[in-house]
Design a protein around this nucleic acid. Structure first.
Length: 754
DNA sequence: TGCCCGGGTGTTTTT
DNA sequence: CACCCGGGCA
């Protein structure tokens, strides 16, 4: 089979080169992923060993998708051996293999942003610095930027430019905090996200034999989304590719949207310098969108000064113009968009998953959630607080992490007194002082108080002993026991499950369910590979910090409207795209108004948003919106003026159409209730539950009895099987033919007697 | 040590 | 508006 036969001329040209450095500048929707996957398949068909291929992507999801596509072309047996993943996950893997060379244990913990900030916060406090000036996020960003430029704590303090900037902003101690932070992480056998790249650079630089080994292994390297690589990533790629120079990078400068976290478009320009005999390919034909959308997007990006010249075009239909909606408030914007979605599903037979609502900030999702929920339209929110960042999940993971790495200080602090076991802040603080004095880990101090002059009374001592011996027990089994078995035991024996199950508030129930979901996930994880192989909790923990929600996609999430930030939408496409909150200070964000560069990045972001659309694009703005509890007036975004008006269709949005929509709503509800009797799965976000606090009144609740037929606005008709608990916390077990058995709190579930 | 209340503060975007 | 944190009190 010729894997290149499905490609166009430009795509074939880029995919068929086997040797040498090549750069592919790929316009939006031009089949960039297709070129990458077919190129890899082509390499394999030409006898290149999959073990010699390294393919770096921006997200885990992209990696999985590519792997799937390649496997369907060359077969799973071959494709499974390709190293494909994000920079972070691939190099975490390598660091675990080569851990000795950098003085870390192989089971090091990966600190997520929360963990890192918490470490910083503790340091700021210890040093008695002003915590309003040294905010964790500011300090974290400074340290992160330094690490991405490969500046270690010493170089930081010796770098006049950096230190004078810190002095100028009134924060001369950041270098000092960086030093402590660095030591603290090391002591905890932990690395933050940036360390994964930083230490990989150190590893490859200081160990020529290791570099040689991986150069030899990764003879063919591919990098997707090259425009969004940062300096640390650039150097890793450069080092690995130095020997064979079989490197293929794919990107689009017009879609560079991550400079705020160190991404550097210069990397594209450096490529020419580093590989003077490189071949350049441009993919300019867009296969995704209508002419209108492509042209409108071109008219936007043209405003930017800095860009590589290319002309994206399409042979697709003209399509309809881009609709512009004006609303009076953020809530009305939600209704407007939801109604438009509903109409399209009715009149044009679009499925729910053919819609996306894209916004600049996560906070904007609320009004759309509410409006969609009212119309009974199923939706899924991507991003926001990820599953793995939820408090209850982190609480349980802390026990796992601590059991795997006893030095993990963040996990220790988190788990030692939750659930309560009488080891309070005072005790911890005392122990921390000892740990700092003796330059050892908190864990060591707790295990051997005498040795580290940690003075405690016998009561506390016995509580500590109980805790440490429990953890030691888990620790001894972490790589010998089935992951689910141990995870479940930990959840149960530490009292965490009990603690959560005793909380009968709706939020508490969601938390309990989340824990169950995590345990189920672990159980699934143990089954994914060959049957006989023992999968341990240590295996599960290896890259749990690098997982995101996108890796968690559920079957029942398939036919839903997608809500996400534009950043999260990168690389995706939808027939119908709504870009909402098109207002000055929101999009473009007010933070970006300081410099031309930042404003151009916002414009690229808008370009990315618009080019996600295949058939219909829609822009929306509100003239007023709630911000921090205050209603503020908004100006339409300058981007609306920048688009060539020839591609726009300004919807007149009068009172009349508004009331029509309202009249329709009742209708909508009924139609939908019959048509989609499937349950709308409960929201994952804990906050969402809280917002619906309109309780049912007492009489209504007391009227309901076992055996009654009731109507629920999500699950439809059902029968009450059981009632438990006293008013107002009466809980009903209801059987819904369409949704199965559900436990509902009567004060929240608006059940109607039939 | 734990709980409750009040004030202060914050929203870009993410591996 | 919501959340987080710290102070004060039991």
């Amino acid at each position: 089979m010729n894997v290149l036969k499905e490609l166009n001329e430009a795509q074939v040209a880029a995919a068929k080169v086997i040797e040498g450095p090549i750069m592919v500048i790929a316009g939006a929707g031009s089949g960039k992923t297709k070129v990458l996957t077919h190129r890899i398949a082509h390499l394999i068909e030409n006898g290149i060993d999959p073990f010699n291929i390294l393919s770096l992507t921006f997200t885990n999801k992209a990696a999985q998708e590519m792997k799937g596509r390649i496997s369907s072309m060359v077969g799973e047996d071959l494709s499974r051996n390709i190293w494909m993943g994000t920079f972070h996950s691939i190099f975490a893997r390598i660091l675990r293999i080569e851990h000795e060379k950098i003085g870390y244990p192989s089971n090091f913990t990966i600190y997520d942003t929360q963990d890192s900030k918490s470490v910083i916060k503790a340091i700021v406090k210890e040093k008695n610095l002003d915590d309003k000036l040294y905010k964790p996020s500011i300090v974290y960003n400074r340290i992160s930027a330094a690490k991405n430029s490969l500046i270690d704590p010493e170089s930081y303090q010796n770098n006049i430019e950096i230190t004078s900037t810190d002095k100028a902003t009134g924060r001369p101690e950041i270098g000092d905090i960086y030093m402590s932070y660095h030591q603290r992480c090391f002591r905890a056998s932990a690395m933050d996200f940036d360390d994964l790249l930083f230490k990989t650079n150190v590893l490859l630089k200081q160990n020529p034999e290791v570099l040689y080994k991986y150069q030899d292994k990764f003879k063919y390297i591919l990098v997707d989304e090259y425009q969004d690589t940062n300096h640390a990533q650039y150097l890793i790629v450069k080092a690995l590719a130095a020997r064979f120079e079989n490197i293929c990078v794919v990107g689009d400068d017009a879609q560079s949207i991550y400079s705020f976290r160190g991404a550097n478009i210069q990397n594209i320009l450096n490529f020419r310098r580093d590989y003077p005999d490189y071949q350049l390919f441009k993919l300019e034909q867009n296969y995704r969108s209508t002419k209108n959308i492509v042209e409108a997007a071109n008219s936007i990006i043209r405003v930017n000064k800095e860009q590589i010249k290319k002309s994206v075009w399409t042979a697709n239909n003209e399509g309809s113009k881009i609709k512009v909606f004006k609303s009076y408030s953020d809530n009305e914007e939600g209704k407007t968009i939801s109604n438009d979605i509903f109409e399209k599903t009715q009149n044009e037979k679009f499925a729910f998953n053919e819609f996306a609502i894209l916004y600049r900030t996560n906070a904007q999702s609320r009004s759309f959630e509410e409006a969609l929920r009212k119309l009974n339209l199923p939706y899924k929110i991507y991003g926001g607080l990820s599953f793995y960042q939820r408090k209850e999940i982190k609480d349980l993971l802390a026990y796992f992490r601590l059991s795997a790495n006893l030095n993990d200080e963040e996990s220790l602090k988190r788990s030692i007194n939750y659930p309560r076991r009488g080891i309070g802040q005072t005790t911890i603080n005392k122990a921390l002082v000892c740990a700092n004095q003796h330059e050892t880990s908190l864990w060591n101090v707790l295990c051997d108080p005498q040795r580290f002059e940690f003075l405690i009374n016998s009561g506390t001592k016995s509580k500590l002993d109980l805790f440490t011996s429990t953890i030691l027990n888990y620790n001894s089994r972490i790589d010998k026991t089935n992951a689910y078995e141990l995870a479940h035991e930990i959840a149960k024996n530490t009292g965490l499950l009990k603690e959560l199950s005793s909380d009968r508030t709706p939020e508490g129930i969601v938390r309990f369910e989340n824990i169950q979901e995590l345990l189920n996930g672990i159980q699934e994880f143990t089954k994914q590979t060959e049957e006989s192989k023992l999968i341990t909790l240590a295996d599960f923990l290896v890259d749990v910090a690098l997982l995101t929600d996108a890796d968690n996609e559920k079957e029942d999430d398939r036919n839903k409207v997608s809500l996400m930030t534009i950043h999260a939408a990168k690389g995706l496409e939808f027939p119908n795209v709504y870009i909402v909150g098109m207002e000055e200070d929101l999009f473009p964000s007010q933070m970006s108004k300081n410099s031309r560069n930042e404003l151009e990045e916002e414009r690229r972001l808008f370009y990315v948003a618009l080019t996600r659309a295949k058939v219909n694009a829609c822009l929306s703005y509100a003239i007023s919106r709630f911000k921090w509890g205050n209603l503020i007036q908004c100006e339409p975004s300058r981007f609306l003026e920048e688009i060539d008006p020839a591609y726009l269709d300004y919807k007149k949005y009068t009172k009349k159409t508004f009331s029509n929509i309202h009249k329709k709503k009742t209708n909508v509800d009924n139609v939908l209730r019959n048509k989609f009797s499937k349950p709308l799965p409960h929201l994952k976000k804990v906050q969402n539950i809280k917002q619906t606090t309109s309780y049912n009144n007492k009489e209504e609740i007391l009227k309901i009895n076992v055996g009654d037929d009731v109507l629920h606005d999500r699950f439809g008709k059902g029968k009450v099987i059981e009632l438990n608990g006293e008013f107002p916390n009466t809980k009903a077990t209801v059987f819904f033919p369409s949704a199965g058995q559900k436990q509902l709190l009567l004060k929240f579930a608006k059940l109607q007697l039939i």
